[in-house]
Nucleic acid binder design. Structure first.
Lengths: 203, 203
DNA sequence: TTTATTACCGGCTAGCCGGTCAATAATTAA
DNA sequence: TTAATTATTGACCGGCTAGCCGGTAATAAA
């Protein structure tokens, strides 16, 4: 083994799509260990590069987190919008929203958990980009519910409350759902929809 | 100023109910900053004692967290059980459960947030006591729903799903609810109940 | 061929954190 | 009065972390 091989410095371990690779590994670690319990050393080790290399692509740890969140929110909205627009009846639109949200969550599980439960505590500062992306996404559901009510197609007298209820059920899924379990996330979403659509009341 | 006054060591700042005081301040900090971003120095400063004094009453940081969680879960169950048992009709029981849960959350907000969102990440080790307390609490709701269905008083064909749905909505409240806002948590819980009871479907 | 740029590395540092400990003061028991 | 117990402190330690820096190798541009 030559000295050059042993003390390799410079450009030995170039990986392709470094930013995306780093983000994916970071999301996985953030999701399981939590943001605060994940060091950039951990991230670097998972990717197979040095910590300094991580800093070559990102300037702070927070920036890595923010990028995961915003990218996920934007992809989520695009994914859901596409499926919602195909629906004709109001109830199909709502069902499509719930199923699409759950499906996306399952397909991007670690990033999604990072998005919702990455940090502990409530005082996290949300970046402007994150706030905008969140609002934009929630508006998709809210306008759908409002239209259904305005057209008299569904019985939704409290749109804000219904919207919150739907998102709450879906968001909390990321707390107990396990991708390696028997049932798909979409199935649980279907159950939730049926529940909300039919109601408890006996007829 | 004598030397004795300046370098006071020993027993100068005794507080009453030290354990409870420490737990309350710790819960408040855990809830806002997150468990990992709260140092025991922070806790000690909030209480007005030294960090070493905290270690006189608790042996690890984790122990403080665990105690907050278990105590809250037990008090929650007692609080909710008392109110649920008064209900006669099945739907009143469910409504009582939801309203009581929300009310308890509001009255013990910081501890509750700590319970649900204190840690980041999913790999937190739940203590045996916490698991038992959680199971016990969820059983209250599940048996209530099962009875309503068995007696044919309500239309709940998927008890597991309905139980998850209810707890999801209530648990997620601790993410967006603010105790200093206009509406009480119980009002939101009432809205949710109405939604689940009536359903979206037009009649 | 020289120069500039990009991709990476090892090593460092200032600072914080959980936890320990010996010392001291107040309180209680003997 | 004395001894034991309990409450509390400041000082300290080992370990870890985010971020920085000086340097090096490969590539691209001039």
């Amino acid at each position: 083994m030559t000295d050059r091989e042993r003390r390799q410095v410079g450009r030995p371990a170039t990986i392709e799509a470094p930013r995306e690779t780093i983000l994916a590994h970071a999301a996985s670690l953030f999701a399981t260990m939590g943001y605060e319990n994940t060091s950039l050393q951990d991230v670097a080790r998972a990717v197979g590069i040095s910590k300094a290399a991580v800093y070559h692509y990102f300037s702070t740890k927070q920036q890595i987190y923010d990028e995961i969140v915003v990218v996920m929110l934007q992809q989520l909205e695009a994914f859901v919008r596409e499926r919602v627009e195909k629906a004709e009846r109001s109830e199909d639109g709502i069902r499509a929203f719930m199923v699409a949200h759950a499906t996306f969550m399952e397909e991007n599980f670690t990033e999604f958990v990072t998005l919702l439960h990455g940090h502990g505590g409530t005082s996290r500062v949300r970046s402007p980009g994150e706030i905008a992306a969140r609002d934009s996404y929630e508006t998709v559901l809210r306008t759908m519910l409002q239209q259904a009510q305005d057209r008299g197609e569904l019985n939704i007298d409290n749109v804000a409350s219904a919207s919150r209820a739907i998102l709450s059920m879906l968001n909390w899924m990321s707390r107990w759902f396990r991708p390696d379990g028997e049932r798909r996330a979409a199935e649980f979403a279907e159950d939730y929809f049926k529940l909300l659509y039919m109601g408890f009341k006996r007829r």
